Simulated assay, not measured.
Amino acid sequence: MTDPNRHSLLEDAQGIAYGAGMAAFAITILTHLGLVTGQTAGLAVLISYATGWGFGPVFFVVNLPFYWLGYRRIGAVFVLKTFLAVGLMSGLVMLFPRWVDFAHLDPVVGAVLFGAISGSALLALFRHGASLGGVGIVALYLQDKTGFRAGWTQLLVDLVIFAIALALRDAVTVAISALGALVVNLVIAVNHRRDRYVAT
């Protein structure tokens, strides 16, 4: 008998595909505007800007060290789903510029769109037992080991990333980028409630 509180394999596949696809589109908006963001994606964006390497391969490689912690902290199924999501997103980021072109995109509007689209992408991944890896896994691990709140770890990492961004981008661009990061976090904070959505 099918458990109504669990997703089927097909439901997981479409959720991960949607999440990875929308995340890739959001990064396409972000990098088109030369903006930055937080977490692991933000680190990959900064490396990409500083070196000229493509975001997709950088993001894929940056996430590799975190899978072991994800396995230890959450389990093999989570790691497998996350690996698939990260791989799909990394590939799609390289393809989207061939499919989408922006004749004009206001940076402030673009930052808000990035935040909203990224937030919906992450919600889809969370609800299907996946993520885009990285800092969130480390934050949960440190919380387990030391009691230091995961949210504080993520905030501190974001502050460091945005401080580094000031060396690569002007203050206005970084401020607009911070707006996008704020929108991402608001979308997740308002909509990600395990007590209201229990399927995994």
Rank of each mutant, 00 (worst) to 15 (best):
V93D: 11
V58I: 10
Q154I: 15
T153M: 11
T153V: 10
S118F: 04
P65T: 04
V79S: 05
V183M: 07
T146M: 10
R149M: 12
W152S: 14
A17K: 09
R194L: 15
V157T: 13
D195R: 13
L142K: 06
T2D: 15
L159Y: 01
A130P: 07
G54Q: 12
V190M: 12
A165T: 02
Y18S: 15
A44M: 13
L168Q: 03
Y141I: 06
A181L: 06
H7S: 07
L179Q: 00
L179E: 06
A76G: 14
K81L: 04
P57V: 01
V138T: 04
Q39P: 00
T200H: 05
L132K: 10
R193V: 15
H32C: 08
V174K: 02
L113D: 09
G38W: 01
A41T: 13
V62A: 13
I47P: 00
A165V: 02
L35Q: 08
L9G: 01
F66L: 07
L95I: 15
V184R: 00
G87D: 04
H32A: 14
L122P: 11
A20Y: 13
P65M: 02
A121F: 08
I29H: 03
A20R: 11
T28A: 12
T153E: 07
L142F: 13
A23E: 00
A121W: 02
L95N: 12
R169I: 06
T31W: 06
